[in-house]
Amino acid sequence: MPGAEVPTRVDRSAGSQARPACAVRWTHALAWAAAGATFPLIWMGGLVTTYGAGMAVPDWPSTFGYNLFLYPLESWLAVWDVFLEHSHRLLGASVGLLSIALAVALWLTDRRRGMKWLGLAALAGVVLQGVLGGLRVLGNEIFLAKVHGCTGPAFFALAAALVTLTSPAWPAHGGPAGSTPGFRRAAWLLAAAIYTQIVLGANLRHQDPEGGAGWFRLWVWLHVIVAGVVVAATVAMRVWASSRVGQPVVVRRAGLLVGLLVLQVCLGIAAWVVRYGIPAWFADWTGELPYTVQAQSPLQAIVVTAHVAVGSLALATAVTLCLWSGRAGTQHN
């Protein structure tokens, strides 16, 4: 992590029971690679949903009968929807391979209790995500698409947790507790609220406003209400971290989370406008504004997908805030 000093020979400060420094560096690098590859995967998945390209390739795990890695390049690039869906699959396979490497590295080199199982959990998570995506294609099931949209951010948060836990800056022991039990519980509750917001957003994203207007309004209001609660709670956590906790890493994580959620609210408003237009009550208040919704336009795709991606990034940041707030006496980043 930024600001961490990497030991030159043997790491005795990261809860690793004297692991060789090269093992620390390699597992940390693999964790970063897995998390770093997952973020563009979430972006690509968001684009697939925005453009309605999830069924552009009707078979799975093959692509039009071809092995995933042998699909002809000219066919891949010829049709936009096929390009999106096949790219999504290739990125998913890449994350899977990185997860395998990370799980093996943790199992062979990390002696900390639970780390081996966390590596296997990450591997199981990416396999589950791939299977859900495949079954969604084979069955054309909207419910599976919603579940698929919820498990992706959860896996990204787990990958971010592994980045933190494999960091050379993660100390084995600290001094007095850096934060109170109340703060740590509040941090986990905030992470749970952010994930609830992601689940609500996934349902709203796959809800037809014309086919079920009542359900659509319900999901919208739940999404808006929980968003307000999450933003207010995050600001309170930032103030709490600064005034009572004092750990630099916790204060920085809380500040980063505030910034991400402010950005997320702005993206949420923009996503509504580019998908559904300017609300009538707002137009009545401000006067008619010249804007026409263009379905599947580049602007719509970028804004809506950014809203999805930043939500996942906020969840990952919240999880790392939880981990660092529970680390006694650490002053590292």
Results as ranks from 00 to 15, higher is better:
residue 252 R to K: 10
residue 159 A to L: 14
residue 154 A to M: 13
residue 331 Q to V: 15
residue 103 A to I: 03
residue 290 P to C: 04
residue 59 D to M: 07
residue 36 G to N: 02
residue 316 A to E: 11
residue 278 I to K: 04
residue 76 W to V: 07
residue 36 G to T: 02
residue 148 H to I: 03
residue 39 F to I: 13
residue 156 F to D: 00
residue 323 L to C: 07
residue 61 P to A: 09
residue 234 T to Q: 08
residue 142 I to Q: 09
residue 95 V to E: 02
residue 7 P to S: 14
residue 160 A to Y: 10
residue 46 G to T: 10
residue 85 E to G: 04
residue 243 S to A: 13
residue 330 T to A: 10
residue 177 A to E: 11
residue 206 H to F: 05
residue 205 R to L: 08
residue 179 S to K: 01
residue 162 L to W: 06
residue 207 Q to K: 04
residue 297 S to L: 14
residue 157 A to L: 09
residue 277 G to A: 03
residue 295 A to R: 10
residue 184 R to S: 08
residue 35 A to V: 02
residue 238 R to A: 14
residue 44 M to E: 11
residue 20 P to H: 13
residue 277 G to T: 03
residue 239 V to S: 03
residue 276 Y to G: 02
residue 20 P to C: 13
residue 238 R to E: 11
residue 215 W to M: 02
residue 91 L to G: 02
residue 24 V to C: 12
residue 232 A to H: 06
residue 52 G to I: 10
residue 206 H to G: 00
residue 234 T to W: 06
residue 237 M to R: 00
residue 140 N to G: 12
residue 270 A to D: 10
residue 191 A to C: 08
residue 266 C to S: 15
residue 295 A to M: 04
residue 64 F to K: 01
residue 333 N to F: 12
residue 287 G to Q: 06
residue 279 P to A: 10
residue 27 T to Q: 07
residue 197 Q to I: 04
residue 240 W to C: 02
residue 39 F to C: 02
residue 222 L to H: 00
residue 189 L to C: 09
residue 99 S to L: 11
residue 273 V to K: 02
residue 325 S to D: 05
residue 127 V to G: 10
residue 265 V to Y: 14
residue 307 H to F: 12
residue 214 G to R: 00
residue 184 R to M: 05
residue 229 V to N: 01
residue 170 W to R: 15
residue 192 A to V: 08
residue 101 A to L: 11
residue 130 G to C: 07
residue 46 G to F: 08
residue 236 A to W: 14
residue 169 A to R: 09
residue 203 N to T: 01
residue 288 E to F: 09
residue 72 P to L: 11
residue 23 A to K: 07
residue 20 P to Q: 13
residue 251 V to L: 06
residue 89 R to V: 14
residue 196 T to P: 01
residue 144 L to K: 14
residue 311 G to E: 03
residue 132 L to S: 03
residue 116 K to F: 09
residue 306 A to T: 12
residue 309 A to E: 05
residue 329 G to I: 11
residue 269 I to F: 11
residue 94 S to L: 13
residue 108 L to C: 05
residue 154 A to P: 04
residue 58 P to C: 13
residue 24 V to R: 09
residue 29 A to V: 06
residue 252 R to C: 05
residue 222 L to S: 00
residue 98 L to V: 12
residue 267 L to M: 13
residue 273 V to Y: 10
residue 161 A to H: 04
residue 284 D to F: 11
residue 165 L to E: 06
residue 180 T to H: 10
residue 127 V to M: 12
residue 206 H to Q: 08
residue 242 S to C: 07
residue 157 A to S: 08
residue 262 V to E: 05
residue 181 P to W: 06
residue 59 D to L: 12
residue 120 L to P: 05
residue 215 W to P: 00
residue 174 G to A: 13
residue 9 R to S: 15
residue 60 W to D: 11
residue 117 W to M: 11
residue 290 P to W: 03
residue 128 L to A: 15
